[in-house]
């Protein structure tokens, strides 16, 4: 099927089988390999991207459902100040090791920061439950997100 969608701000038209999921479209057709495939059943969160402004599992969106959508993958946040702060925090808090879960983790972390500005540690952990990391034990990830939240709250007062 022919498919038109917006990816990282650019209108794109491609040809895809209806069974191809968004993660494979991004990675295979558009060479945006920052979106990683971890389980293809919606549990691990590695493939999480932003679809129409909200995080979604790209492994569970098959081609047809993407028609007309606006998709933002990890490659599409270059100018985003919240993502920049999170990247800085992730490095400072050693929130990544092998890097495989990191893009999905960052997309979800950014959503937490913007949607739940008053989230405490317990809430941050709960919101991260759908993103598995096998390397870090999560402490650095949690601390990085809490750090960005605190900095933004500080800046707002």
């Amino acid at each position: 099927m022919k498919l038109s969608l917006t990816v990282n701000g650019q209108a794109t038209t491609l040809e895809a089988e209806p069974r191809t999921h968004l993660a494979d479209l991004l990675r295979g057709e558009l060479l945006l390999t920052g979106t990683h495939i971890g389980c293809e059943h919606g549990v691990c969160g590695a493939c999480t991207v932003e679809v129409d402004g909200a995080p979604a599992r790209s492994c569970l969106l098959h081609a047809g459902a993407c028609a007309g959508a606006s998709v933002r993958s990890i490659e599409g946040f270059a100018e985003d100040p919240v993502m920049a702060a999170l990247r800085e925090g992730f490095s400072a808090e050693h929130a990544l090791q092998c890097g495989y879960c990191t893009p999905g983790m960052l997309v979800v972390a950014r959503d937490i920061v913007l949607r739940l500005p008053h989230a405490d540690e317990a809430r941050v952990r709960e919101e991260l439950a759908g993103n598995l990391c096998r390397c870090t034990g999560y402490r650095g990830i949690v601390r990085a997100i809490l750090g960005v939240l605190a900095a933004r709250r500080g800046a707002a007062t």
């Binding site: 945006l32 390999t33 920052g34 979106t35 993958s73 990890i74 490659e75 990247r87 992730f90 490095s91 990544l96 092998c98 890097g99 495989y100 990191t102 893009p103 960052l106």
Partner: peptide, 9 residues
């Protein structure tokens, strides 16, 4: 870290 944070691993 830099390449992983940018999705460039």
């Amino acid at each position: 870290d830099a390449r992983f944070l940018l999705g460039r691993g």
